[in-house]
Amino acid sequence: MIELQLTVRGPRGNAARLRDLLAREGFTLDGDWATEGTALRVTVSHESGDASLQSAAREIEELDAALRELRNLDVAKSQFLANVSHELRTPLTAIVTYGEVLRDGLLGDLNDRQREAVQSVIGSSRQLLSMIEEILTYARTSATAIELEPVHFATADLIRTAHDMSASLIRKKGIRFETTVEKGLPTAAADRDKILHVLTNLLGNAIEFTPAEGGLIRVVAERSAKNRGWICVTVEDNGIGIDPEHHEMIFREFAQVDSSRARQHHGTGLGLAIAKNFILLHGGEIGLESELGKGSRFFFTFPSVESEPQEGAD
């Protein structure tokens, strides 16, 4: 029921005209027709107003239910992804293990071409497995509330660990690798495993998109210019770069900059979405500066022992 309180000023005739007008338009006049001086107060209600109000309320309820269902579906989707990728790992593990048993001649000697063929089976299976691991990590981070386990660590050590993990790839491609850590950088206070995950992911992308000839990757750790007591790590490469119009999109799940690149460069398109999740959980920022053909510069921030809780971070 819609109710209006009207106050009409002016000669009494005006009130009468108003009453007729309202009645013609379908209002019910519930008259406490009190007069105060020349003012007239009246409560009116309108049936059609009532109905449209009710249908608006119903619509809001329906939207709310639909939203709740979407959220449930999203959790269900992530759980499904987690289950499927878990199930996919088992047969792949068997393929890899049997492959290695064969490759290493435990069931009889292989000639060189046979060994190469088996090695290809193993290599491809491991590649598939690492993609499945990525999907699993993503699904777990979005299906369940992830709790951070913050510890104190030195950012320089973290960069060294990340470099060591990719050292063979860097060497194989002949990429130059430089690190700069600001003097007096405070001790980090964050979930080390997750920050390491972010850094190795960015490093992996940089390695993949940097040319073998003249490739250069620079990792810099410094105090954040924007947020006092926060650490900012940047990973810079001189590779193919990313068109600014794609900058926001690449942090979304399942995104690949374009399909031709997807064909050239494998990957699930989940790495950066996971990285973003992990950084946002810390209240930090992640982003990039890049132009096509001019390399990319990714950065992310995380707290140190000197950080004060941030306000308005998203």
Binding site: T93, D104, E133, L136
Partner: peptide
């Protein structure tokens, strides 16, 4: 599986001497 799933510390606490991620490199 990999580290995000099982706490390595939980393995040691239970009495394991070590921890290998699957698929284990057979060599």
């Amino acid at each position: 599986g990999r580290a995000l799933e099982t706490d390595q510390q939980a393995c040691f606490d239970a009495g394991c001497a070590g921890y290998l991620a699957k698929p284990v490199d057979t060599q």
